[in-house]
Protein backbone atom coordinates (compact mmCIF):
# COMPACT_ATOMS: atom_id res chain seq x y z
CA UNK A 1 0.00 0.00 0.00
CA UNK A 2 2.74 2.39 -0.97
CA UNK A 3 1.92 4.59 -3.98
CA UNK A 4 4.41 5.52 -6.65
CA UNK A 5 5.85 8.99 -6.72
CA UNK A 6 3.57 11.80 -7.87
CA UNK A 7 3.28 15.57 -7.79
CA UNK A 8 0.38 16.99 -5.89
CA UNK A 9 -1.14 20.29 -6.88
CA UNK A 10 -4.05 22.00 -5.17
CA UNK A 11 -6.07 24.30 -7.37
CA UNK A 12 -8.49 27.01 -6.36
CA UNK A 13 -10.44 27.43 -9.58
CA UNK A 14 -11.80 25.41 -12.43
CA UNK A 15 -9.67 27.35 -14.91
CA UNK A 16 -6.54 26.45 -13.02
CA UNK A 17 -7.56 22.79 -12.97
CA UNK A 18 -8.29 22.82 -16.69
CA UNK A 19 -5.04 24.45 -17.65
CA UNK A 20 -3.10 21.96 -15.55
CA UNK A 21 -5.04 19.12 -17.13
CA UNK A 22 -4.25 20.52 -20.56
CA UNK A 23 -0.60 20.75 -19.63
CA UNK A 24 -0.15 17.30 -18.10
CA UNK A 25 -2.71 15.41 -20.20
CA UNK A 26 -2.72 11.69 -19.51
CA UNK A 27 -0.07 12.05 -16.82
CA UNK A 28 -2.57 13.84 -14.61
CA UNK A 29 -5.54 12.64 -12.61
CA UNK A 30 -8.13 14.77 -10.92
CA UNK A 31 -8.44 14.12 -7.19
CA UNK A 32 -11.99 14.65 -5.99
CA UNK A 33 -12.93 12.66 -2.86
CA UNK A 34 -10.17 10.18 -3.61
CA UNK A 35 -12.04 7.12 -2.40
CA UNK A 36 -11.57 5.19 -5.62
CA UNK A 37 -8.41 6.82 -6.91
CA UNK A 38 -6.25 6.65 -3.80
CA UNK A 39 -6.75 2.94 -3.10
CA UNK A 40 -5.89 2.23 -6.73
CA UNK A 41 -2.77 4.39 -6.40
CA UNK A 42 -1.74 2.67 -3.20
CA UNK A 43 -1.90 -0.62 -5.07
CA UNK A 44 0.03 1.02 -7.91
CA UNK A 45 -2.75 0.02 -10.26
CA UNK A 46 -2.85 3.69 -11.13
CA UNK A 47 0.32 5.71 -11.21
CA UNK A 48 -0.55 9.25 -12.27
CA UNK A 49 2.46 11.55 -12.28
CA UNK A 50 0.39 14.55 -11.25
CA UNK A 51 -2.55 14.71 -8.92
CA UNK A 52 -4.71 17.80 -9.28
CA UNK A 53 -6.74 18.25 -6.12
CA UNK A 54 -9.97 20.10 -6.85
CA UNK A 55 -11.22 19.78 -3.25
CA UNK A 56 -10.70 23.48 -2.62
CA UNK A 57 -12.84 24.64 -5.54
CA UNK A 58 -15.87 25.86 -3.63
CA UNK A 59 -17.79 26.57 -6.83
CA UNK A 60 -18.13 22.84 -7.52
CA UNK A 61 -20.03 21.96 -4.37
CA UNK A 62 -23.72 22.76 -4.53
CA UNK A 63 -27.21 21.37 -4.83
CA UNK A 64 -29.67 23.83 -6.35
CA UNK A 65 -32.86 24.01 -8.36
CA UNK A 66 -33.12 26.54 -11.17
CA UNK A 67 -35.91 26.73 -13.68
CA UNK A 68 -37.09 23.21 -13.06
CA UNK A 69 -33.58 21.79 -13.30
CA UNK A 70 -31.70 20.35 -10.38
CA UNK A 71 -27.96 20.92 -10.43
CA UNK A 72 -25.51 19.00 -8.28
CA UNK A 73 -21.92 20.18 -8.34
CA UNK A 74 -19.31 17.53 -9.02
CA UNK A 75 -17.63 18.01 -5.63
CA UNK A 76 -20.83 17.52 -3.67
CA UNK A 77 -20.26 14.69 -1.23
CA UNK A 78 -22.49 11.67 -0.87
CA UNK A 79 -23.31 12.89 2.63
CA UNK A 80 -24.43 16.29 1.35
CA UNK A 81 -26.76 14.55 -1.08
CA UNK A 82 -28.01 12.17 1.61
CA UNK A 83 -28.95 15.09 3.84
CA UNK A 84 -30.12 17.63 1.26
CA UNK A 85 -33.60 18.89 2.13
CA UNK A 86 -34.06 19.99 -1.47
CA UNK A 87 -33.38 16.52 -2.82
CA UNK A 88 -35.31 14.73 -0.12
CA UNK A 89 -38.30 16.73 -1.23
CA UNK A 90 -37.90 16.88 -4.98
CA UNK A 91 -35.89 13.77 -5.86
CA UNK A 92 -35.61 11.40 -2.88
CA UNK A 93 -34.06 8.72 -5.06
CA UNK A 94 -30.69 10.42 -4.75
CA UNK A 95 -30.62 10.67 -0.95
CA UNK A 96 -31.87 7.09 -0.79
CA UNK A 97 -29.03 6.01 -3.06
CA UNK A 98 -26.53 7.95 -0.99
CA UNK A 99 -27.57 6.25 2.24
CA UNK A 100 -26.70 2.88 0.73
CA UNK A 101 -23.39 3.96 -0.67
CA UNK A 102 -20.13 2.86 0.95
CA UNK A 103 -19.77 3.57 4.64
CA UNK A 104 -19.86 6.76 6.64
CA UNK A 105 -16.25 7.65 5.93
CA UNK A 106 -16.76 7.17 2.21
CA UNK A 107 -19.96 9.21 2.26
CA UNK A 108 -18.24 12.05 4.07
CA UNK A 109 -15.39 12.33 1.58
CA UNK A 110 -16.52 10.74 -1.67
CA UNK A 111 -18.18 12.90 -4.31
CA UNK A 112 -20.79 12.31 -6.97
CA UNK A 113 -18.55 13.76 -9.67
CA UNK A 114 -15.65 11.53 -8.69
CA UNK A 115 -17.85 8.47 -8.62
CA UNK A 116 -19.38 8.98 -12.06
CA UNK A 117 -16.01 9.89 -13.58
CA UNK A 118 -14.45 6.71 -12.15
CA UNK A 119 -17.31 4.59 -13.54
CA UNK A 120 -16.87 1.54 -11.36
CA UNK A 121 -19.19 -1.08 -12.83
CA UNK A 122 -20.72 -1.68 -9.41
CA UNK A 123 -20.98 1.92 -8.20
CA UNK A 124 -24.37 3.19 -7.08
CA UNK A 125 -24.61 6.67 -8.64
CA UNK A 126 -24.61 5.54 -12.25
CA UNK A 127 -27.91 3.69 -11.76
CA UNK A 128 -29.50 6.69 -10.11
CA UNK A 129 -28.32 9.28 -12.63
CA UNK A 130 -29.51 7.09 -15.50
CA UNK A 131 -32.89 6.63 -13.82
CA UNK A 132 -33.50 10.37 -13.40
CA UNK A 133 -32.35 11.00 -16.96
CA UNK A 134 -29.48 13.19 -15.86
CA UNK A 135 -26.89 14.83 -17.99
CA UNK A 136 -23.28 14.94 -16.94
CA UNK A 137 -21.99 18.41 -17.57
CA UNK A 138 -18.39 18.25 -18.60
CA UNK A 139 -15.94 21.08 -18.98
CA UNK A 140 -12.90 20.72 -21.14
CA UNK A 141 -10.49 22.56 -23.38
CA UNK A 142 -13.29 23.51 -25.76
CA UNK A 143 -15.69 24.61 -23.09
CA UNK A 144 -18.73 23.04 -21.61
CA UNK A 145 -20.92 20.27 -22.92
CA UNK A 146 -23.61 18.02 -21.54
CA UNK A 147 -23.54 14.26 -22.03
CA UNK A 148 -26.57 12.14 -21.35
CA UNK A 149 -25.89 9.72 -18.52
CA UNK A 150 -26.90 6.90 -20.86
CA UNK A 151 -24.05 7.83 -23.17
CA UNK A 152 -21.59 8.83 -20.50
CA UNK A 153 -20.82 5.33 -19.24
CA UNK A 154 -19.00 3.55 -22.04
CA UNK A 155 -17.56 0.47 -20.38
CA UNK A 156 -15.89 -0.69 -17.21
CA UNK A 157 -14.00 2.26 -15.70
CA UNK A 158 -14.45 4.01 -19.01
CA UNK A 159 -16.54 7.08 -19.73
CA UNK A 160 -16.91 9.39 -22.67
CA UNK A 161 -14.72 11.96 -20.89
CA UNK A 162 -11.96 13.06 -23.24
CA UNK A 163 -8.41 13.97 -22.20
CA UNK A 164 -8.50 17.36 -20.56
CA UNK A 165 -12.13 17.05 -19.47
CA UNK A 166 -13.47 17.13 -15.99
CA UNK A 167 -16.95 16.61 -14.61
CA UNK A 168 -18.55 19.89 -13.56
CA UNK A 169 -22.00 18.89 -12.47
CA UNK A 170 -24.85 16.45 -12.71
CA UNK A 171 -28.14 17.99 -13.73
CA UNK A 172 -31.60 16.76 -14.46
CA UNK A 173 -35.16 17.93 -14.71
CA UNK A 174 -36.87 17.97 -11.34
CA UNK A 175 -39.46 15.22 -11.30
CA UNK A 176 -42.92 16.67 -11.91
CA UNK A 177 -46.35 15.36 -11.10
CA UNK A 178 -47.06 12.31 -9.02
CA UNK A 179 -43.81 10.42 -8.75
CA UNK A 180 -42.48 7.52 -6.78
CA UNK A 181 -38.84 6.52 -6.54
CA UNK A 182 -36.71 3.84 -4.98
CA UNK A 183 -33.14 2.58 -4.89
CA UNK A 184 -32.61 -1.03 -3.91
CA UNK A 185 -29.38 -2.83 -3.76
CA UNK A 186 -27.79 -6.13 -2.86
CA UNK A 187 -24.52 -5.25 -1.18
CA UNK A 188 -21.43 -7.32 -1.78
CA UNK A 189 -20.57 -8.66 1.66
CA UNK A 190 -16.93 -7.62 1.39
CA UNK A 191 -16.78 -4.47 -0.68
CA UNK A 192 -20.25 -3.09 -0.08
CA UNK A 193 -20.45 -2.37 -3.80
CA UNK A 194 -23.65 -3.27 -5.61
CA UNK A 195 -24.00 -6.89 -6.63
CA UNK A 196 -27.03 -5.37 -8.22
CA UNK A 197 -28.41 -1.89 -7.71
CA UNK A 198 -31.74 -0.80 -9.11
CA UNK A 199 -32.80 2.82 -9.28
CA UNK A 200 -36.39 3.51 -10.18
CA UNK A 201 -38.40 6.64 -10.78
CA UNK A 202 -42.04 6.41 -11.84
CA UNK A 203 -44.47 9.09 -12.85
CA UNK A 204 -48.15 8.31 -12.44
CA UNK A 205 -50.95 10.01 -14.27
CA UNK A 206 -54.55 8.98 -13.81
CA UNK A 207 -53.53 5.76 -12.10
CA UNK A 208 -51.31 4.74 -14.98
CA UNK A 209 -47.56 4.94 -15.41
CA UNK A 210 -46.90 7.82 -17.75
CA UNK A 211 -43.12 7.71 -17.56
CA UNK A 212 -40.38 5.79 -15.85
CA UNK A 213 -36.65 5.65 -15.49
CA UNK A 214 -34.88 2.44 -14.52
CA UNK A 215 -31.13 2.40 -13.99
CA UNK A 216 -29.27 -0.82 -13.28
CA UNK A 217 -25.77 -1.14 -11.86
CA UNK A 218 -23.59 -4.06 -10.84
CA UNK A 219 -24.96 -6.50 -13.38
CA UNK A 220 -22.96 -5.67 -16.44
CA UNK A 221 -19.59 -4.11 -17.05
CA UNK A 222 -21.39 -0.81 -17.39
CA UNK A 223 -24.54 0.60 -15.85
CA UNK A 224 -27.51 0.61 -18.16
CA UNK A 225 -31.04 1.81 -18.65
CA UNK A 226 -33.52 -1.07 -18.56
CA UNK A 227 -35.39 0.09 -21.63
CA UNK A 228 -37.64 -2.95 -21.98
CA UNK A 229 -38.76 -2.53 -18.39
CA UNK A 230 -39.58 1.10 -19.08
CA UNK A 231 -41.45 0.17 -22.25
CA UNK A 232 -43.46 -2.47 -20.42
CA UNK A 233 -44.40 0.00 -17.69
CA UNK A 234 -45.66 2.68 -20.04
CA UNK A 235 -49.39 2.95 -19.55
CA UNK A 236 -49.52 0.09 -17.08
CA UNK A 237 -51.69 0.23 -14.00
CA UNK A 238 -48.69 -0.56 -11.80
CA UNK A 239 -50.46 -3.51 -10.24
CA UNK A 240 -48.44 -6.42 -8.90
CA UNK A 241 -48.80 -8.46 -12.06
CA UNK A 242 -47.73 -5.73 -14.46
CA UNK A 243 -44.77 -4.77 -12.27
CA UNK A 244 -43.58 -8.37 -12.16
CA UNK A 245 -44.02 -8.69 -15.90
CA UNK A 246 -42.08 -5.49 -16.50
CA UNK A 247 -39.32 -6.52 -14.09
CA UNK A 248 -38.78 -9.77 -15.94
CA UNK A 249 -37.05 -7.67 -18.61
CA UNK A 250 -34.48 -6.23 -16.18
CA UNK A 251 -31.51 -7.83 -17.85
CA UNK A 252 -32.75 -8.02 -21.41
CA UNK A 253 -29.91 -7.82 -23.85
CA UNK A 254 -27.20 -8.27 -21.24
CA UNK A 255 -24.75 -10.85 -22.51
CA UNK A 256 -21.75 -9.90 -20.39
CA UNK A 257 -23.21 -10.15 -16.88
CA UNK A 258 -20.41 -10.01 -14.32
CA UNK A 259 -19.32 -13.26 -12.72
CA UNK A 260 -16.99 -13.12 -9.74
CA UNK A 261 -16.38 -15.09 -6.57
CA UNK A 262 -19.56 -14.02 -4.83
CA UNK A 263 -22.12 -14.22 -7.58
CA UNK A 264 -22.26 -15.51 -11.13
CA UNK A 265 -23.72 -13.59 -14.03
CA UNK A 266 -26.77 -15.83 -14.02
CA UNK A 267 -27.51 -15.06 -10.38
CA UNK A 268 -26.93 -11.36 -10.95
CA UNK A 269 -29.49 -11.36 -13.72
CA UNK A 270 -31.94 -13.14 -11.46
CA UNK A 271 -31.31 -10.64 -8.66
CA UNK A 272 -31.78 -7.82 -11.17
CA UNK A 273 -35.24 -9.11 -11.98
CA UNK A 274 -36.31 -9.64 -8.38
CA UNK A 275 -34.93 -6.36 -7.14
CA UNK A 276 -36.34 -4.45 -10.08
CA UNK A 277 -39.75 -5.79 -9.18
CA UNK A 278 -39.27 -4.89 -5.53
CA UNK A 279 -37.99 -1.43 -6.35
CA UNK A 280 -40.91 -0.90 -8.70
CA UNK A 281 -43.36 -2.03 -6.02
CA UNK A 282 -41.80 0.34 -3.52
CA UNK A 283 -41.74 3.21 -5.99
CA UNK A 284 -45.32 2.54 -7.07
CA UNK A 285 -46.38 2.49 -3.43
CA UNK A 286 -44.69 5.82 -2.89
CA UNK A 287 -46.35 7.32 -5.94
CA UNK A 288 -49.78 6.80 -4.48
Amino acid sequence: MIPANFDYITVKSLDEALSLLAKHKDDAKILAGGHSLLPAMKLRLMQPKVLIDIGKIKELSYIKEEGGQIHIGAMTTHFQIETSALLQKSCPLLPETATQLGDMQVRNKGTIGGSVAHADPAADWPAAVIAVGAEIVVIGPKGERAIKADDFFVDMLTTSLQPGDLVKEVRFAAPKGKTGQAYMKVRHPASGFAVVGIAVTLTVDGGKCSASGIGVTGVSSKPYRAKSVEAALKGSALDAKSLAAAASHASDGISDAISELYATGEYRKHLAEIYTRRALETAAGRAK
Binding site: R44, L45, M156, L157, S191, S221, I258, L261
Partner: peptide, 17 residues
Protein backbone atom coordinates in the same frame (compact mmCIF):
# COMPACT_ATOMS: atom_id res chain seq x y z
CA UNK B 1 0.31 -11.27 -9.33
CA UNK B 2 -1.30 -8.00 -8.30
CA UNK B 3 -4.00 -8.21 -10.95
CA UNK B 4 -5.14 -11.59 -9.65
CA UNK B 5 -5.03 -10.64 -6.00
CA UNK B 6 -7.03 -7.43 -6.21
CA UNK B 7 -8.71 -7.48 -9.58
CA UNK B 8 -10.86 -10.58 -9.22
CA UNK B 9 -14.19 -8.82 -9.60
CA UNK B 10 -13.13 -6.98 -12.75
CA UNK B 11 -10.97 -9.48 -14.57
CA UNK B 12 -13.74 -11.10 -16.52
CA UNK B 13 -15.12 -7.72 -17.54
CA UNK B 14 -11.65 -6.61 -18.54
CA UNK B 15 -11.17 -9.72 -20.67
CA UNK B 16 -14.51 -9.12 -22.36
CA UNK B 17 -13.59 -5.52 -22.97
Amino acid sequence: GLLASVGQRMIQGAANM
